[in-house]
Design a protein around this nucleic acid. Sequence first.
RNA 1: GCGGACGUGGCGGAACGGUAGACGCUACCGACUUAAAAUCGGUUUUCCGAAAGGAAGUGCGGGUUCAACUCCCGCCGUCCGCACCA
Length: 839
Amino acid sequence: MTDRFDPARADASWQARWAEADSFRADSASSKPKSYVLEMFPYPSGRIHMGHVRNYTMGDVLARYRRMQGFEVLHPMGWDAFGMPAENAAMEKKVHPGAWTRQNIAAMREQLKRIGFAIDWSRELATCEPDYYGHEQALFLDLMEAGLVFRKESEVNWDPVDMTVLANEQVIDGKGWRSGATVERKKLSQWFLKITDFAEELLDGLGTLDQWPDKVRLMQENWIGKSRGLQFRFRLASPEGANDSIEVFTTRPDTIFGASFVALSPGHPMAEALAARDPEVAAFIAKARLGGTTAAEIETAEKLGHDTGLEVIHPLDPERRLPVWIANFVLMDYGTGALFGVPAHDVRDFEFATKYRLPVRRVVAETAARADDPVVEAETGDGIAVNSSFLDGMASAEASAEVIKRAETAGWGTGKTQYRLRDWGVSRQRYWGTPIPIIHCDACGPVGVPRDQLPVVLPEDVSFDLPGNPLDRHDGWRLVDCPKCGGQARRETDTLDTFVDSSWYFIRFASQPKDQPFDRAEAEAWLPVGQYIGGVEHAILHLLYARFWTRALERIGKIGLKEPFKGLFTQGMVTHETYQSLDGRWLSPDEVEIGEGGAPIERATGSGAISGRTEKMSKSKKNTVDPEPILDRYGADAVRWFMLSDSPPERDLEWSIGGIGGAARFVQRVWRMVMAAPVEDGDDAALTRKLHRTIAAVGEAIDGLQFNKAVAALYELTSAIEKATPSGARGDAIDALLLLAAPMAPHLAEEAWAARGKKGMIVDAAWPTHDPALLIDDEVTLAIQVNGKLRDTLTAPRGLAREAAEALALGSAKVQAQLAGATPRKVIVVADRLVNIVA
RNA sequence: GCGGACGUGGCGGAACGGUAGACGCUACCGACUUAAAAUCGGUUUUCCGAAAGGAAGUGCGGGUUCAACUCCCGCCGUCCGCACCA
């Protein structure tokens, strides 16, 4: 034994001991209560970064804590292994995406193991392996049979040079991120999942997720975007071809008398029909479709319109005619792709009407008396209906209900609920993804691959020399017989969105039979995930898709589970300072030194540098810190401890070398204390009380995922033990400290536990319990206030009677000095806490 | 534009409506040492004061209360999400 804790030796040796003992295997058949702790699985980019370390450390503390509390814990790890970076690497480095990915997985697995996470590695999975994605294909077919999968034409961003489809974030200023070519919109026939069928229950379900952050629930609620309103048809004054009406949706039926135009989306079928025979319309539509989809562009985009010359009849005032325009601000995929404009009460309509000199008619006012106030800007709030015939005088909500009622009675419209949520397009024109298990036959149409032919395995012999999806040109794989008619047919070459892969991996972790995606009973034994931990960037898509997928499986009877994640925690990012040289190059913090007067200087050139904001670690800003050298230097426990200290876990954690140093110091401090602990007998009531308070505080903090508070409580206990004189109680406190610290600094805890001659490993030890009686002191400190200001603090026996406390307080010289002879008017006594004398 | 969160020392942050600044970092002083590292003890919200002590203080302005970082109203600022959603 040395006087220094040696993490390099201890980390490896205890990790080996845990592996040998198979300490973290989750036994589905265990009779113990179960606890499922899960962190969002990583994409195998090749290196672990600090964000991973923080995320998995939090989950690990919880998993180890639950285990010590007597739970059978499932804490698995896997790889979200499909996706574009592997294809990019294939193109750049001429390696196969699979080889690249598997190599990355191997490297990252070793890195994770060095941090000593309590993971059941026997359940490890990678979504890019057929034994995972094959089951996903089966589930896809199940959903298809249940009518939850459909095919539809949809627009994609098409890069004509790379001949590939781009995600929105790959389109930069209207150009492909890699080729720089101007991106085109192209219509492709693609597969969709009917998530909109679940809009209402996904929304309702949010109400049951009381262990989710409010913020995430709100974001999902807004994303689903439910709104109630009226859908109805405007009859055309003179029929236009086959169409004699235009269907619109509104959330403000009460403003219907304020309508001054009808606007069609440039993608609306009627607009397209008009364009087919009128070049002017066609030209306008082409113009309207230009322009980017970025937020900034939309913000500044000018409203453009084209008058079609058509007119519709107002449903409540047959004398009134409204002009029909085509307008660039009308979205095709919300509502009906057409709307009626009420300039007085809608910001966009107002802008449009002002530009094209369309009438602005007030139909809502604060009071009936202000019915004819001029409208200087769009007034979007509720009020009283005015200038609206039979609606006049009604409040907005009442007026809306009245219009819907009349529409339904007269048969020209119906009350309707609209959702912003759109169906989930899952087709990706990519190689490195789950093949969609469909065969296209000219005679039979799209046919599901028969179950006994699953998995549809990705062919290995592909090349990325040519642009486009290599599956499209791999005839050996692509050309197959139709399973129905036996005729010549082709495999679907699109692969599934990787969000599908991550929509059920938590079920596969819980149960992984060979012959089916999961065993229902076994999966249900573990699920829902008790605590799910990950970044807030997944607040909407991943978490919504996973909720949908689970509900879809529930609907088709595969699992008895509506919500996959009972508790959700979104942790903050790991940030670091940033620097830039004067000419704008990003500098890593190592390349900068702080000169006299605190001004940053670039080491290499000696010239000044600019310190920027502290931001999320990212390669582009060169402010990353690689965990590996830090682990080498300080050991796993110091890194883990630092990740949990200081910042509340939901907030960003600023990386600092001082912080990690402090954590390493604490590890050594505990070790020294253990090494130097003399064996003595005897009590130490004060220390015992401190210990029991700490046990309660740490447990409460970990339960609430407030790791920074648990850390602070352990620092306090450590100081108290150091200051205490040797006694039996002190020895007990050291033992308990090790148990309490074990989830956070497990290697140190094991090493110290062994050094203190304890039997067995600390991972198998029970979490200490506290005696509630010891949380209460016999003596309390009373705060003595005069007029609400603290003037004195006095020690008093606990449970001191009101009168006695009052007398005690009045006896204080400081109080008497403050009162200066005045008689107290009133005395407030809060038992065992304070006395407030009001003079 | 809409929605949400946050604002406390030099810094990260604590604080059931009841002693603001726990705990950590930094800095400084001291001890040990030939020396350094490591370690240990101490100080560290501001102002006045030698001290005892006093005054002010949780973004700003009001309010409720015996008592407000905490609750309410109005500003200011920062960050996040959504975004032409009818």
